[in-house]
Design a protein around this nucleic acid. Structure first.
Length: 805
RNA sequence: GCCGAAGUGGCGGAAUGGCAGACGCAGGGGACUUAAAAUCCCCCGGCCUCUGGCUGUGCGGGUUCGACUCCCGCCUUCGGCACCA
């Protein structure tokens, strides 16, 4: 009997070797074929590594290790997305500087990741909070500012009552703050904004050229939300004002029977003298402001609204006077903040009209407008003057031509995407490198003055005014104008956490560069990222933001690739054993450290990949994890069955080669669970044979090594198989061994399984027909029936279609 | 409400339109052992008249020689969301 499998000792040993030999550092040899594997860099939270992290990490570690064996120069980097509110909140609660908390958390995370044996290039590690990194985040911001893509705007924003800072719409989840869960209200604030909408078309077009899983493309397209329609002006009766609306259905203009303004619409104030029930309208507006966007959408079925008495619009087609209402189902942030209501052909308008007894006029044939709005974009126009009888598509064109001729409207493309609110009134973020000068206005810092360091404070609490804690540090706020030298003040807002993660993949290419964010040479070689795996939850925020920044840098000629990521895949969430989301409060958290201690890193990695389909949410099973350890024990004991034979024996050729093929293909398709099943099947086969040759064991260790690298290296070394696996080539398979001389096929009658037959695997169609005639079993089964036809699928089945005589 | 994904044994899951349940977990039985653990071997969807047969992949239809897979209509669950005019 050989030695026992001591996972912890083996793992420590090989991790030290990899470290010392710098095995996984990407080479600066730009003549080699490259491969850039990326995982979303973790936020180093105080609670430590979650078992969800290793799912994505192991998957990409497998690809990285396989690529190295295939001869690629692989970049598989790691870093820390360390700015953000949880750290800041922890710092406030425990009265310690966020810098210290961050350092501790990063050290803890690094230690945990190293314990699992990922093949990261730690020589390129950095944190977004390093001044040498955020110097370049600030630099990119200044480029955006120079190019008119960063601006300040007074606008209604989401205001978190607890964090006391503005949030992007995208950060508001179910009406509460994504970070702290507190209520979000609307408040007006002068905010830094990034003009991502300028890139809407490009962000959309770029999706055509990248290999993202379809759900990601779909979600980004829906988020950008391009629509084609028209803007139309409605005269307001008795005034010189026109009410501008956007519609995707200009063809239904004859059916517009009333108008609706968002409660925040400026006309309510501008025309206040004409509004008979002004007080009522203002009261309604105040009600709406108190509602979060969530509530405004929640109450979908019970619409509220008030008619603006004294104001009427003129439908430009029918020339009729139509009432104007105000309702919070119309949002100020989309389109023009006002709509023409066509209740016959829009669900929301229909409900509203039903509720308030407003007229509903059918203008497209095909539905029953007494029962519901008819919304399909096909049908014939009725009750519509000069477009009567036209189909919807033609009617749209005709109306737009008419609007343009009359000068009251034109076609217009709209996006649902909104500009990115980029300010945070918080401490733990990159300071925005702008100075406010009483003479020159807003002045960007000079490049040579970057990084603008985040100063240490005594107290990190948000101020009651809602300004950043930085505003309290007078010595920092007071400065000279970079342009004229006059006394000036620094911007005290900081950037959101998304800033640092919008370009980190570029920095990995050349992480120690002091002169540039990364050298052109390094970027040209490494970019784009070949394969990026991450969570679906980042699809519309991080993934879109980083594509935006990258496209912008591309437009400046600073990066060559038009898109940052060539391929994007996604992993499923790991749930607790009870099938619920893992969380401290639910008490179902699995600690990676304990697990590595109990079953070892290799078994842990193996289970993470074996537990189920990679892209689906899977509940944890401690027994399943132990089963994976059991498999590795079985692999370890193969050493006791080893015979002194270099080659793969004849009876094992089929098994070995089909395993290599299956594992190679399944890794690429992220079907890790079936790849591992194939290796288990192979090991089961060896056990039934009772012995294994050196060649047979080598084949297994090579394909197993990306998932379970430590045990594979150890057995390889102990058995004297040569240079370590990390220097070996990925094994290939030979098609000629994938065919067995005989196969078992199914015999079906009318599609029902009746028997099984052993036949030569090269059995031809003619041979099959002959077989049907000559085989006694078959003849017995169809004795009293008439054979209509036979269907033969080589290697699979023989189906006899018969009829009763 | 809208968009997306998914429904297969006790559980996690396999299955280019071709033998449903690979592989693993849990369970049962046996071997080994003084014994237990570990290990090795075998069984393991349901039902029946049990060397065989029937039935079975959320429900109801359809296409096909043949459907977990494709089409139509439902139901349920899970994610995401923006009442987007």
């Amino acid at each position: 009997m050989g030695t026992n499998y001591n996972a912890n000792a083996i793992e420590k040993k090989w991790q030290d070797i990899w470290d010392k030999e710098r095995v996984f550092e990407a080479k600066n040899d730009y003549t080699m074929p490259k491969y850039y594997c990326l995982i979303e860099f973790p936020y180093p939270s105080g609670s430590g590594l979650h078992v969800g992290h290793p799912r994505s990490n192991t998957a990409m570690d497998i690809i990285s290790r396989k690529r190295r064996m295939e001869g690629y120069n692989v970049l598989f980097p790691i870093g820390w997305d360390a700015f953000g509110l949880p750290t800041e909140n922890y710092a406030i609660a425990n009265k310690v500087p966020p810098q210290e908390v961050t350092k501790e958390n990063i050290d803890a995370f690094r230690r945990q990741l190293k314990l699992i044996g990922f093949s990261f290039d730690y020589s390129r590690e950095f944190s977004t909070t390093d001044p040498s990194y955020y110097k370049w985040t600030q630099w990119i911001f200044l480029k955006l500012y120079e190019n008119g893509l960063a601006y300040k705007a007074e606008m209604p924003i989401n205001w978190c009552t607890s964090c006391k800072c503005g949030l992007a719409n995208e950060e508001v989840v179910n009406g509460v703050c994504e970070r702290c869960g507190s209520e979000v209200i609307h408040r007006v604030k002068n905010q830094w904004m990034l003009r991502i909408t300028e890139y809407a078309e490009k962000l959309l077009a770029g999706l055509d050229d990248v290999d993202f899983i379809p759900q990601v493309k779909q979600q980004q397209r829906n988020w950008i939300g391009r629509s084609e329609g028209a803007e139309v002006s409605f005269k307001i009766d008795g005034t010189d004002k026109e009410l501008r609306v956007y519609t995707t259905r200009p063809d239904t203009l004859f059916g517009a029977t009333y108008m609706v303004l968002a409660p925040e619409h400026s006309y309510i104030d501008e025309l206040s003298s004409k509004i008979e029930n002004y007080d009522e309208i203002i009261a309604y507006r105040e009600d709406s402001a108190r509602k979060s966007e969530f509530e405004r959408t929640e109450l979908a079925k019970d619409k509220t609204g008030v008619q603006i008495k004294g104001l009427y619009a003129i439908n430009p087609c029918t020339k009729k006077r139509i009432p104007i209402w105000v309702s919070d189902y119309v949002l100020i942030s989309y389109g023009t903040g006002a709509v023409m209501a066509v209740p016959a052909h829009d669900d929301r308008d229909w409900e509203f009209a039903q509720r308030f007894n407003l007229p509903i006029i059918e203008v497209v044939k095909g539905g029953d407008i007494k029962e519901a709005a008819y919304t399909p974009e096909t049908g014939e126009l009725v009750n519509s003057g000069f477009i009567n009888g036209m189909q919807v598509v033609d009617a749209k064109n005709a109306i737009i031509d008419w609007l343009e001729k009359e000068g009251i409207g034109e076609c217009k493309v709209n996006y649902k995407l909104r500009d990115w609110v980029f300010s945070r009134q918080r401490y733990w973020g990159e300071p925005i490198p702008i100075v406010h000068c009483p003479k020159c206005g807003m002045v960007p810092l000079n490049e040579k003055d970057l990084p603008l360091l985040l100063p240490e404070l005594e107290n990190y609490e948000p101020t009651d005014t809602g300004e950043s804690p930085l505003s309290r540090l007078e010595s920092w706020v007071k400065t000279k104008c970079p342009k004229c030298g006059a006394d000036a003040e620094r911007e005290t807002d900081t950037m959101p956490q998304w800033a640092g993660s919008s370009w980190y993949f570029l920095r990995y290419c050349d992480p120690h560069n002091d002169e540039e964010f990364a050298s052109k040479e390094a970027l040209d070689y490494w970019m784009p990222v070949d394969w990026y795996n991450g969570g679906m939850e980042h699809t519309t925020l991080h993934l879109l933001y980083s594509r935006f920044w990258h496209q912008f840098l591309h437009d400046l000629g600073l990066v060559s690739a038009p898109e940052p990521y060539n391929k994007r895949t996604s992993h499923g969430m790991i749930l607790g054993e009870n099938g619920e989301k893992m969380s401290k409060s639910r008490g179902n958290v699995i600690n990676p450290d304990d697990l590595v201690e109990e079953i070892g890193a290799d078994a842990f990695r193996l289970y993470e990949m074996f537990m189920g389909a990679f892209d689906q949410a899977i509940p944890w099973s401690m027994n399943g994890a132990r089963g994976c350890r059991r498999f590795l024990e079985r692999v370890w004991r193969l050493q006791d069955m080893l015979i002194d034979e270099e080659k793969i024996r004849k009876n094992m050729l089929y098994h070995a080669h089909s395993m290599i093929k299956k594992v190679s293909e399944d890794y690429e398709a992220m079907k890790y669970n079936t790849a591992i099943a194939a290796m288990m099947t192979y090991v089961n086969e060896v056990y039934s044979v009772g012995s294994i040759s050196r060649g047979e064991l080598k084949a297994l260790l090579l394909v197993l090594s990306p998932v379970a690298p430590h045990i594979s290296e150890e057995i390889w070394q102990v058995q004297g198989f040569g240079e370590p696996i990390y220097k070996q080539k990925w094994p290939s398979y030979d098609e000629k061994y994938l065919v067995l001389p005989e196969v078992e096929i199914a015999l079906q009658i009318n599609g029902k399984l009746r028997s099984r037959l052993m036949v030569p695997s090269d059995l031809s169609r003619d041979d099959a027909d002959k077989l049907v005639k000559e085989n006694e079993t078959i003849q017995g089964l169809i004795a009293d029936k008439k054979l209509v036809k036979t269907i033969f699928v080589p290697g699979r089945l023989l189906n006899l279609v018969v009829k009763d005589v």
